[in-house]
Design a protein around this nucleic acid. Structure first.
Lengths: 295, 295
DNA sequence: CGGCGACTTGAATACTATCAACGTCGGTGG
DNA sequence: CCACCGACGTTGATAGTATTCAAGTCGCCG
């Protein structure tokens, strides 16, 4: 019959702590969609890569978009949990703040990623999400979403599936953090980023980093100097080309399987690698079998 | 103090009180069929610390218990996902196997923990769960559970909450892995374990480890030698008392805030610490303020 | 132009891993 | 019963990797 519009509060971009306690049904002309300010359920599901429930054409539910400028916070630690967020465009980081005020980067969400999940547990956010570039974020008021879940069983299931996927992602992150060398961490970080860009239709081989070396280091459990050095080393060998935040991956398979770099003196560029190894087989194919030490 | 506790009746409050002996559901709480124990929905919810839905007395759903002997696998990597598991008693580990066959320990589930969540995403388990002691596990067929979720909205919500909690736990794990020193990792591992035992009604100060040094090391991103050395160092200072797998935490606050140990030569036992520092205040209260280095 | 934040690079240090030897505990079989 | 074995644990010496400290460069913005 009518188009029901849900949003949290009509905070345009005041990042922190939306004060209003409950989702407000906007009674004004808000649901006159200018441009892309609102999305329906189908668009939301498409973004999340989950099957959209067979929509009831009428009684459309619309979700508000909010824009955040680089540096703004989407949600902060301790903030009341009211809504989930979907990244429609832009690049963010989520961070934990430890007892000494140090930032621990947990993830770098981008288009299609779901934010705020950590608030479901006890109605307060455990982490904070910061925009690294200008962002367009869709608000999913949790109450609204839950209500929809009661209607469409697939939606509940999809939600659980997304959480489960996130869990698996974090598990492999744990495995990576505790088992890999600095070089392997950086290499995987780059290829993972590339794959994510690929999935969004961008180049997976050439892209630029939206985060600082410090943030990369925090994410990988390294210092910024180590990250910088490792990138330089990769660049010198020819595995990648790096100029500030501009990155080109030149040998993705090698990056994916890399465990540790050979000692600096034994290094040579990839371009020389093949010819040098042909007929000699002196050097082990680093990245493949050098792992013996780790046992 | 009487220990007669019936978890059949009204309150949803702690089954914690059943501290003595083995936490096996006694005869009046479980149903015995064909030599197996069965639990109803209320018992399952109590175990998970989630509010049980107002039960429909009739059409009771029962969940089967299965026993696993130490060393047995509850589920393996790649296995089809069909059911979730709840630990009713016993101690397990969940592990990831990397591309070289190395184990990465992800968690040490015990009573009340939910297993198998990682399978929801793509219908295959991403990790494997191994019993470290004899275990009593409750099977929650996922289809059954989903169906119940459609009936009881609280159950869906509770499920999401549990997943969210697990996510937060893993996030703090990530933070710990990438930011803390070996000593801090071990210290927190011990206090966390103690807290979990406390919640189950056991002593949080004295317990024995059910896992090897190797497994602890894998969990913390350390080698077994480092774990062993760190435990020895803690023991020598008097922070803990350790004999093989028997552990006593002697100074939990210090363990919780510890960042790094002072150099070996400057060490002294906790028993001497107070008297030594009285009137001198030469040594910084290590663990509290030594963190300067980390910025 | 000055200053600041981000980045790079070098040298020294510190921490943890690695390698190795040995001790302990429990179970098994001679 | 004892010897042997294997898994687990401890401890020491050494090597190696990542951090820390310290300049110094680059690019950007006021």
């Amino acid at each position: 019959m009518t188009t029901a519009v849900f949003n949290t509060s009509t905070t345009s971009q005041s990042s922190v702590a939306t004060k209003s306690a409950f989702p407000v049904i906007s009674g004004e002309a808000g649901w006159r969609c200018h441009g892309n300010l609102w999305s329906n359920l189908r668009e939301v599901c498409d973004l999340l890569h989950i099957p959209a429930p067979a929509a009831s054409a009428e009684e459309e539910v619309l979700f508000q978009h909010v824009r955040f400028k680089a540096g703004q916070r989407v949600h902060t630690i301790g903030q009341d949990f009211e809504t989930l967020y979907i990244v429609n465009s832009g690049f963010l980081k989520t961070v934990l703040i430890d007892e000494y005020g140090n930032e621990q980067v947990l993830s770098f969400p981008m288009k299609g990623d779901l934010l705020g999940i950590d608030g479901i547990h006890n109605q307060h956010h455990a982490s904070e999400a910061v925009a690294l570039s200008d962002c367009d974020i869709i608000l999913l008021p949790y109450k609204t979403f839950s209500a929809l879940g009661r209607i469409y069983a697939e939606l509940e299931q999809a939600m659980l599936s997304v959480l489960s996927r996130e869990l698996v992602r974090e598990q492999s992150m744990i495995g990576m953090l505790s088992a890999l060398s600095a070089e392997a961490k950086v290499a995987r970080f780059l290829t993972n980023l590339g794959e994510r860009f690929s999935l969004l239709g961008y180049s997976g081989k050439t892209f630029n980093l939206r985060m600082t070396r410090h943030e990369i280091g925090s994410y990988l459990g390294l210092t910024l100097e180590t990250v910088s050095r490792t990138l330089s080393a990769f660049n010198e060998i020819g595995l990648i080309s790096v100029d500030q935040r501009q990155i080109a991956l030149n040998d993705i398979p090698a990056l994916k399987t890399l465990r540790r770099l050979p000692p600096a003196k034994a290094r040579m560029k990839v371009s020389e690698k093949v010819s040098a190894l042909v007929g000699k087989s002196l050097l082990p194919q680093w990245g493949q079998d050098i792992s013996v030490a780790l046992n």
